[in-house]
């Protein structure tokens, strides 16, 4: 019986050997039955991706193209399967977006392609795939990551959607007029906002919950920025659309409330170090609509100021706000038809869509900038909680 000499760390080559018949068990334990809130909570971020890649490395190392193919195919299909089953759970989708991207980065970082090796240690270069070029599989995995990203946005939108109008428009914090709805409106979902009324705070807490979940899962910072930008776009678009459809929202005080809410959202971005991710800019139409509610709307000079201020609003949107505008009190008159004509004349040669409402379903195209990892594969140890005892470190 061979003496079990403990191998020193440097003897491992960062691969995991497994028998072909154990492949189904591998994807079952590592993908299909892994609970993001359970075992996965205290894993190192991206561990499933590293484990899958180390298995792939061994199949490549022994020059078994069939084993490489079947592992990649069952990995991809298992991820798709779990997302079909639990695709409405933000944690699950975020977890597998982070791991799919990490797997994709590993395929690049260890592809042997110079372009992806700039930040590698010499040790990491030794771990490059030796026999197979998986460029075509990288494209498939990138397509999968795009699908998962779109699903994540849908997930997040379903959670945020019911909060936006209440939190950004209806709930008033400035004049101290409490807009608490009767408790009958209590939401059933287990999400953050379980009180009767969604407030701006509910939105901010939910944004923070999304953000910390993605960080905990090891999602690429560049990807988190794109998700946050998309979240802010949805918040801005839904808020503006409701403003444009509701007379009761077009008042001087509502303009003030919106500007306050926007400043809180910007504060949140600053707090998370996300001021440059483009999220703030997506709120520009809403910001300008709020300003439009507060500026003077009488003279030619006022008209000129409005036209130069409202660059992110279409003419239809500007005219709509002016038509819906409700004076502060009986001393203030409604916006005159003549004034609105002046605005329309000034803006007639603008080439823009006649659209009134923003497209709340628009998703910015996503990119996955290459993000190599400094993690040394040979040091990775597999927690027993993953039930992967049939894998052998090589």
């Amino acid at each position: 019986h061979p003496v079990n000499i403990p191998r020193r760390e440097k003897d491992f080559q960062g691969m995991l050997e497994y028998k072909k018949e154990d492949e189904l068990k591998l994807v079952k334990n590592l993908i299909l039955e892994l609970k993001p809130r359970g075992v996965a909570v205290n894993l190192i971020p991206g561990l499933p991706a590293y484990i899958l890649f180390m298995c792939l490395r061994h199949a490549d190392y022994v020059n078994d193209d069939q084993k490489v193919r079947t592992l990649l195919t069952s990995t991809i299909n298992s991820i798709k399967k779990i997302l079909k089953k639990r695709g409405d759970d933000f944690e699950t989708v975020s977890f597998w977006l982070a791991n799919t991207c990490r797997f994709l980065h590993c395929l690049k970082q260890y592809s042997g392609d110079e372009a992806f090796m700039k930040h590698n240690t010499s040790r990491q270069n030794e771990h490059s795939l030796s026999n197979f070029d998986l460029a075509e599989y990288r494209q498939v995995i990138s397509d999968l990551a795009i699908q998962i990203y779109q699903q994540l946005i849908k997930c997040m939108e379903n959670i945020l959607q019911p909060m936006i109008v209440s939190g950004m428009l209806e709930h008033e914090t400035i004049q101290g007029v409490s807009g608490v709805k009767p408790t009958g409106l209590r939401k059933r979902t287990s999400s953050i906002a379980d009180e009767g009324t969604y407030t701006l705070d509910s939105i901010l807490r939910q944004l923070s919950a999304f953000h910390s979940t993605m960080c905990q899962h090891g999602t690429d910072p560049e990807l988190i920025k794109q998700v946050v930008k998309q979240q802010f776009y949805i918040i801005g678009a839904v808020t503006l659309n409701n403003l444009l459809l509701r007379k009761d929202m077009c008042s001087w005080s509502k303009g003030m409330q919106i500007r306050y809410n926007v400043s809180q959202l910007e504060e949140w971005l600053r707090d998370k170090g996300l001021m440059t991710c483009g999220a703030k800019e997506t709120l520009e139409p809403l910001i300008q609509a709020a300003q439009l509610l507060q500026v003077k709307k009488k003279t030619d000079e006022d008209a000129e100021a409005i036209c130069s201020m409202c660059q992110a609003l279409t003419t239809a949107q500007i005219v709509k706000v002016l038509n819906l505008y409700t004076p502060v009190n009986e001393f203030e008159e409604r916006v005159s038809v003549a004034f609105i004509r002046t605005i329309q004349t000034r803006l007639r040669d603008r080439c823009e869509s006649p659209q009134l409402l923003m497209d709340t379903k628009m998703i910015y195209p996503v990119t996955f900038p290459f993000n190599p990892s400094s993690l040394a594969l040979e040091t990775i140890q597999i927690p027993s909680s993953l039930n992967l005892g049939f894998l052998t470190r090589v």
């Binding site: 193209d65 026999n131 197979f132 070029d133 998986l134």
Partner: peptide
């Protein structure tokens, strides 16, 4: 592997083709 020997490009099915392969496998083993 001598660095000079290029890696063999593995042709990959598309996501959709993979899904079809997966469905047919599942039908064979209910």
């Amino acid at each position: 592997r001598p660095p000079s020997r290029p890696r063999i490009l593995l042709k990959a099915p598309t996501l959709a083709e993979m899904e079809e392969m997966n469905i047919s496998e599942e039908e064979e083993s209910p």
